[in-house]
Design a protein around this nucleic acid. Structure first.
Lengths: 191, 191
DNA sequence: CGGAATCTATCTATCACTAGGTAGGCCGCA
DNA sequence: TGCGGCCTACCTAGTGATAGATAGATTCCG
């Protein structure tokens, strides 16, 4: 089980740094310290690797989102946590969210993986819709529009900000792209 | 000159649809109706192709932006035109802005091309800053923040929206991601 | 208990194919 | 005649994937 996890870890790092098509089984083998052919034991096709990768990643993010949901904090704080989640995922501007990275090279992906990706996006949007709806009730977002539109916009915003920041290998571009949005959030009083 | 242009056209389409690394000289040759080796006469290295591609593209966009600037329309209309420019560039959700597409696979690009890309982003941001500054004076954007922050945010927003829309091959996702922003723009009275 | 069968995880070696790139020749036109 | 533009033929270095073997556990059964 150890090896499989090591492979997933290495593949995830590579995919988020350089793209799914930009690393090979040879790279993976070198990194993990195993022969190239042995990888096929764990993941017969590279498409299988992609599937396992997204599966694990989506679950991880979903967990983090429900954790944010369950924490008893103001709505504004939850939105800040969401932005921080994407910001932190960048690891100093060297990496993208796995699903953003895969979306960028979508044409080489298998149908099941594509479906996973769509699902991931939908789940994120749904979570955001719910949070923005809560914001509608407690007025914690300045100039709030329709929660559905706000959700779609924020998702696009964080993904675009990631892309721009990694293109320049500079996380600060991510932060800069987010400042206008963060400024719309009501300050959380220190209790 | 004929062949060179045809090559650029084909390469641009391919790069924006599937990414710069996802098409080969063989694809290009097939598409243009020429032998693979002959492409090297026009573009000795694939990096040369990338450079020429971005060069032509950036110039085209710059032209369109100055044209928008020079047209005597309200600020809100200029911003709508900017959004429409990115939206139209998607060609029904099948393509990305060339520079977004190249940014996504940045690690395989040569240093000069990387510099071009950074420059392109900076130029776009600068143009937007200028427009948002004008908006500051005539109040055509509701809830306007610092023009610098607004510019960075809008750029990230359109790029992220493109990514999401193409991932699902559906332009409507682009439009959806933009509705909240467009709603902040003052209506242009019909004169 | 002990041997036979089976499974796991890895190996070496090689496959067919594609990538970008090069060398050198051919041909039509100014 | 010279050269721009294209060709055929080839090269090297990869790619993902497969075949077949092996060492070492584990499991099943008489």
């Amino acid at each position: 089980m150890e090896t499989r996890t090591a492979l997933l870890d290495s593949a995830e790092r590579a995919a988020r740094q350089r793209g799914f098509d930009a690393f090979s089984y040879a790279d993976l083998a070198r990194d993990v310290g195993i022969r190239k052919a042995s990888i096929h034991y764990h993941f017969p096709l590279k498409a299988d690797l992609a599937f396992a990768l997204v599966d694990r990643y989506a679950a991880r993010i979903a967990d983090q989102l429900t954790e944010i949901s369950n924490t008893d904090t103001p709505v504004a704080e939850k939105l800040r946590a969401f932005v921080a989640l994407y910001g932190h995922a960048m690891a100093n501007g060297t990496q993208l969210c796995l699903c953003v990275a895969l979306s960028a090279g979508r044409d080489s992906l298998s149908e099941p993986v594509l479906a996973q990706l769509t699902q991931f996006h939908e789940d994120c949007a749904a979570w955001l819709r719910q949070v923005f709806t809560a914001a509608q009730e407690d007025g914690s977002v300045i100039g709030l529009a329709d929660p559905k539109n706000e959700a779609d916009a924020l998702l696009a915003l964080v993904e675009g900000a990631q892309l721009i920041a990694r293109a320049a290998k500079d996380v600060r571009l991510f932060d800069r792209a987010m400042t206008a949005f963060l400024a719309r959030l009501a300050a959380t009083e220190m209790t």
